[in-house]
Design a binder for these strands. Structure first.
Length: 178
DNA sequence: GTTAAGATTTAT
DNA sequence: TAAATCTTAACC
């Protein structure tokens, strides 16, 4: 089986499209863990009120305005790290869940990063070199996808909170159902 | 230097 | 339904 590293051009496209196509792609950490992505959310950019970059270009969100194809990791509630993939121009895709071999029960963006050992130290890392890489499995069969509203973004108002910018593999057990 | 709030999880 | 917990950003 041959895994191909996703090229920069993969990320330099419409954010919601990247979010959809990231499903089934393989996240590699330190060359040890390989976990297929099964759930994502799209954060479109400064005009998207649910996106961090909508509050202005700050040191934290700066990475989202940089080149596409790098990781944006941050800490929420002082407890949980969340992993995002930058698509450029202030936009990014949140990786909500992956299919871990030992991933028992429901997953979630916080547990995901804890299981993989991802921290703020991984912020701004490119996704085409170790220790953090995104790979494509050419042998991966077509996936049945589902979409719905994003989670935990009610503060952005109904206009943005209700948009179907969350994507997941239909029926996959690792998807957070809440 | 201080304060407010959050793309969550887990336990009452 | 509420607490845990800490970085970031917006105030003095």
């Amino acid at each position: 089986m041959t895994l191909r590293v996703l090229p920069r051009s993969f990320y330099e496209r419409e954010t919601s499209l990247v979010a959809r196509e990231l499903l089934g792609k393989v996240l590699e950490v330190r060359g040890e863990v390989h976990a297929p992505i099964v759930e994502t959310e799209a954060y479109l950019g400064p005009h998207d009120l649910a996106c961090h970059s909508s509050k202005g270009r700050t040191p934290r969100t700066e990475v989202m305005f940089g080149p596409a194809g790098v990781a944006y990791v941050y800490l929420v509630y002082g407890l949980h790290h969340l992993l995002n993939v930058v698509t450029g121009h202030g936009a990014a895709v949140l990786i909500r869940a992956v299919a871990l071999p030992n991933g028992s029960g429901r997953s979630g963006p916080g547990k995901l990063t804890r299981s993989l050992g991802l921290t703020l130290a991984h912020n701004r890392l490119p996704l085409d070199v170790a220790p953090l890489r995104l790979l494509e499995d050419p042998a991966c069969p077509p996936l049945r996808l589902a979409s719905g509203a994003r989670i935990g973004v009610d503060y952005a108002g109904p206009r943005w909170a209700r948009r179907k910018l969350r994507f997941w593999v239909a029926g996959h057990p690792a998807v957070s159902v809440t």
